[in-house]
């Protein structure tokens, strides 16, 4: 019987010495670590000069009385700007308006987006075409969306009121009546951004494993049971991420307010972002506007942190 077991070598075989090709030799000083730094440095430079540096500059200005248009320099005023923003009744009113808008718009968009996605996911024929059609509003510029909705909602000349009038329902002051104006902003934002939620929800719905439904079928589970115990729990985490993106976006709503209502009637549709714009450009209180902006970033960051923790816990469980 042949001994097929070989005695292991006493010492490790001598590795063949690798000669670097001439070109690589020239760049021998470029270690892997240096090379990685080199590759990420353009992105880091962009991040530093376009995001981090302006943010630090903004933070610095927020402690001063600087005005961008005045040739008079600036002076250190400590936390005065922050105190002024936090104690201003105007800011409190704008924060409430923003909160109502964010809750109203995001809730409506989530319900509609998920419903549409659920219906589309159950359809086999023409699913791609329908999805593309639904995505069109999301691809338009908010300024364009604002302008055509402004014409459509106009009391005298708008198509919406002409239609309501022809039905004998009378004309509605969509953009000039206190509560309706904010509702109109919610509707227009919903029209534009429901497809975003729909898209994310659709991705979640199509990723639900088929075998779960098949197993449920075998157990003769009802449609409602399948939705409640399989579909919704699996899509929910993804939907929560979409809700977070939309809430952050809605929190800094500016363009639709600017075009549709101009903050009116009587300032009742002014959001925080619109108010920051006024502080920054009506009289150019740059220091105050910087503090206002920093506080908004802080609020969003803290809210997002809590939200993400909840999301992580949900996924872990």
């Amino acid at each position: 019987m042949a001994n097929t077991l070989q005695t292991p070598p006493q010492s490790a075989p001598q590795a063949e010495r690798l000669e670097a090709p001439p070109a690589a030799k020239r760049f021998a000083f470029l270690t892997d670590r240096k090379l990685s730094f080199l590759f990420i440095s353009p992105a880091m430079a962009l991040l530093l000069f376009l995001s981090i540096w302006p943010l630090l500059w903004l933070l610095g200005l927020s402690f001063t009385d600087y005005s961008a248009t005045r040739d008079s320099g600036w002076g250190w005023i400590g936390l005065d700007n922050y105190i002024e923003v936090l104690t201003s009744p105007v800011v409190h009113a704008r924060a409430l308006t923003t909160l109502v808008f964010v809750v109203g718009a995001v809730a409506l968009q989530t319900i509609l987006g998920f419903t549409i996605a659920f219906l589309i996911s159950r359809r086999v024929k023409g699913r791609g075409a329908i999805t593309t059609l639904f995505l069109i509003p999301m691809m338009l510029s908010p300024i364009v969306v604002g302008l055509f909705w402004k014409f459509m909602l106009d009391v005298q000349f708008g198509v919406v009121n002409s239609f309501l009038d022809s039905l004998g329902l009378g004309r509605v002051e969509w953009l000039t009546q206190q509560r309706l104006a904010l509702f109109s902003l919610v509707i227009v934002d919903t029209w534009q951004w429901t497809p975003f939620i729909m898209l994310i929800a659709l991705a979640g719905l199509t990723a639900v494993p088929k075998y779960l439904y098949e197993a449920a079928e075998i157990d003769r589970a009802s449609e409602w049971f399948k939705f409640r115990r399989i579909t919704f729990p699996l899509v929910w985490p993804l939907l929560l991420i979409a809700i977070m993106f939309r809430a952050i976006e809605a929190f800094r709503l500016f363009d639709l307010v600017y075009i549709l209502t101009g903050g009116g009637p009587g300032g009742t549709t002014e959001t925080l972002s619109f108010n920051v714009y006024k502080v920054a450009f009506f009289g150019f209180d740059t220091g105050l506007a910087s503090a206002y902006g920093i506080l908004m970033v802080v609020v969003v960051t803290i809210a997002a942190q809590f939200y993400l923790r909840y999301l992580n816990r949900l996924q872990e469980s």
């Binding site: 500059w57 933070l59 610095g60 001063t64 600087y66 040739d71």
Partner: peptide, 20 residues
């Protein structure tokens, strides 16, 4: 560090900046 940089930045900016 960021805070310190920003504060230094702000502090350095005091005084008259232009002719007015």
């Amino acid at each position: 560090t960021a805070m310190a940089a920003a504060v230094t930045l702000a502090a350095c900016g005091g005084g008259d900046g232009g002719e007015g």
